[in-house]
Amino acid sequence: MSSTLSRSPSGTEAPAVALVTALQSLARAQREAAGRIAHELDWPRSGVALLHLLARCGPTSLTDVAAHLRVDLSVASRQVSTLVDGGYVVRTVDADDRRVRTIELTDAGLALAAEAREQYAALIDRAFSAWSPEDLDEAIRTLDRLVDTISADTERRRAPQNQQEFA
């Protein structure tokens, strides 16, 4: 549903608004798929995303976890604590900088991440079985461009010289 402000003079939906609507639908579909996989693993969706990140990146700082997941540090800390409590992640203190906590998967975390990766692969194989490699390449390029465009605008707005402008 769009407001009259998002319509062109001809009454059609403005392309940028239609794009945002499509992205919101994509985000919902992704959350639903991730939720289904997390349910099958009997694990919270956010925990599975964190396991996937750590399996891909290896040991990393809590600050980097928050940045990669694009969440507040306190949110990342709660997600990590849940995984620590479950025995899937360990926190260690950096020997060079005792303020830094490194997050790393345990063997149980690696196994759960591998199981989640297999389930994601099966879902993707089913969902995109009718897509050609060229279709997939085009979709990847377009999505990467969208992420870069939105991220660049977000970073520009976060820049210190713009803080007063957007306050």
Results as ranks from 00 to 15, higher is better:
A108M: 01
D97W: 05
D96R: 05
R91E: 12
Q119G: 10
V93M: 02
T102W: 14
D72M: 09
V84W: 15
L136Q: 01
D96L: 10
V147G: 09
R158C: 07
A108E: 09
S74K: 03
A111D: 14
V80L: 05
I140P: 00
I103T: 14
R141F: 08
S132H: 02
G109Y: 03
E138T: 07
L110K: 04
A121S: 15
A114Q: 11
L105I: 06
V89R: 00
V80A: 07
R99F: 05
G86K: 01
I124M: 11
L110N: 02
D72L: 04
Q79F: 13
R157E: 07
D96E: 14
G86W: 03
R117D: 00
D96G: 10
T106M: 14
Y120A: 04
E104K: 09
R101Y: 12
D94N: 03
L146C: 08
S132G: 00
V75N: 09
L123S: 00
V89E: 03
A139E: 13
D148E: 13
S132I: 04
A76L: 03
D137V: 06
Y88P: 01
R117K: 06
D96C: 06
R156C: 07
D137W: 03
I150V: 14
V147A: 12
A111F: 07
R78T: 00
A95C: 08
G86A: 14
G109H: 00
D125W: 04
S77F: 05
T106E: 10
E134N: 11
D85V: 03
R156M: 05
V75D: 09
Y88F: 15
V89W: 01
D135A: 14
A114H: 09
A127K: 06
D137Y: 06
D125G: 03
V84K: 08
V100I: 07
T106V: 07
R91S: 10
I140C: 10
Y120C: 01
I103L: 05
R141I: 11
E155T: 06
S151L: 11
G109M: 02
R101Q: 14
A130C: 12
D94P: 00
A114L: 02
V90K: 10
S151H: 10
T106W: 08
Y88D: 13
A108G: 01
L136C: 04
R145I: 11
L110T: 02
P133K: 00
R145E: 15
R145V: 10
L73G: 06
